[in-house]
Structure formats: structure tokens, C-alpha cells
Design a protein around this nucleic acid. Structure first.
Lengths: 111, 111
DNA sequence: TCAAGAGTTGAAGATGTTTGCAAGTCATGT
DNA sequence: ACATGACTTGCAAACATCTTCAACTCTTGA
């Protein structure tokens, strides 16, 4: 009764689909961080950060360990780093042209 | 460019975070498809498929062109293929061991 | 011109996700 | 034992996404 592969993939990508979670993963892909260190880099409430860390933990993208008074997080699978790099490449390519004044007058389909 | 990079990344991943969209991208990464061909492969209402295609179009992951009576879609950036492959690798690794202790270990996921 | 097939769009209810507050746990220092 | 700093959790309001229906556009064939 395993989930179809394409659905597992979708879930996986959805997990990456949050600015704070992306930042966390990028910081962690440089080196391990304690929560208060992440907090110093990311503008977010502590409880919110904790929720996002919980999401990443649940999906096994990161692992946490208590070290004395603090909790340190690390990337669980090194491949995640590759994926973030892949994404960077695609984005550089797909450069979101936010606004093109010469573009045809299409209705504003803001998301 | 007005959007922080990590936010653009999050948006990008969120776009991939839907089962139908993943299937569309996988089918398109094999070859171009007309909408009715996609419809034959994916179990989804025509209008829903159209909505998902619109999402992929908006984010420039696919492009559409009318060809007589049908509309054909193709992958916009070839790198998307690489990304899907990266994801496949990670998933094979991270085999989601949700919280089902009775689950079979390392099931083979068909697609 | 009309009918039919192929797609798209708008709208709205159902579903999910995000955020921040209040309250709680844990470990260390006094 | 108590206070404090470092985190986590439960929860509800705010917000976003998904799905479907009905209505609409385009193109081809009769």
C-alpha cells in the first residue's frame, strides 16, 4: 500500500516549497547549526522555525541531536545539496521575468 | 529579481509539489504531448488538467503551441529533466519510512 | 453556418498550510 | 530549588491551494 511514486515526489517537492525551509536547508548544507544560530540568520519567530524544522524532520531531510543546552541540526542526506544546486541552475535559466513592459496586455492573473 | 532568491526557489519547488504536475512533467520529458494524450495517461478531469497546465505555463516550466485542432505541450527547460532525476535518486534513498512499523522494508515503487 | 471535439477560464466550496501566542519541556548555572 | 535560556507543541485564525461545474473560445468537418 505504498504511495505512488509520483505522489511521493510531489510530497517531497512540497516539503521544499517554503522559503524558511529552503533557507534552513541551505544553511545546513554549509554546516550544522543549532536552532539559535538558524534563528540569527532567518527572520522568523522561534516557534515558527521550530514548526518548519519539524516538517523537515518528519520528512527525514534533516536530523536533530541534543548537545547540552542546545539542539543541533544537520542535513540527513547529502544528495539534498545536489538537488538545491540543480534548482539553482534551473532558476538561473528560467529567470522569472517579473515584469515586461512590452508584454502583451494580459489580465493580471496574480496567483 | 525583486524577489529574494530563496523565495523564488520555494515557489519553484511548490510548483513541482503536485502529483498531476509531476506526472505531466515526466510524460513531457519523454516527448511532447497534446492535452488529450496527457488526459489519456492521467486520471483527472479535463478542466483540472488544464488548471495544472496553466500553473506550469505560468512558471515557464512548459510551453504550449496550438497545432490545428490540438494544443501540444513541451518542457521549456531541459534541466527540469535533471531535476526530476535528482529527486528520484533522493527518494530512493530517503525511502519514506513514515510511521508504519509494520510497513515492508524497502518496497519497490512501481510507477 | 452549425455541430462537435479539444482546451481553457472563472468561480466557489472543500481542503490544506502558515503563523503567532500561550504554555510546556529540558538542561545548565546559582 | 529556582531562574533562565533554548526549544517544542497545541491550537485557532488567516491565508493559499485544489477540485469541479458551468460557460466559453477555437478549429475542423459536414
Amino acid at each position: 500500500m505504498s504511495v505512488p511514486l509520483y505522489q511521493a515526489k510531489a510530497e517531497f517537492f512540497r516539503t521544499l516549497g517554503h522559503p524558511a525551509r529552503i533557507r534552513i536547508l541551505e544553511l545546513l548544507s554549509e554546516r550544522d547549526h543549532a536552532v539559535h544560530e538558524l534563528l540569527a540568520q532567518i527572520t522568523i519567530e522561534p516557534s515558527n522555525l521550530s514548526q518548519q524544522l519539524a516538517v523537515l524532520r518528519r520528512t527525514s531531510l534533516v536530523v536533530a541531536r541534543r548537545e547540552g543546552g542546545e539542539v543541533r541540526y544537520s542535513i540527513a542526506a547529502p544528495e539534498v545539496r545536489d538537488l538545491l544546486i540543480s534548482a539553482r541552475r534551473i532558476l538561473a535559466d528560467l529567470v522569472h521575468v517579473d515584469e515586461d513592459p512590452t508584454a502583451a496586455p494580459s489580465p493580471k492573473t496574480a496567483r
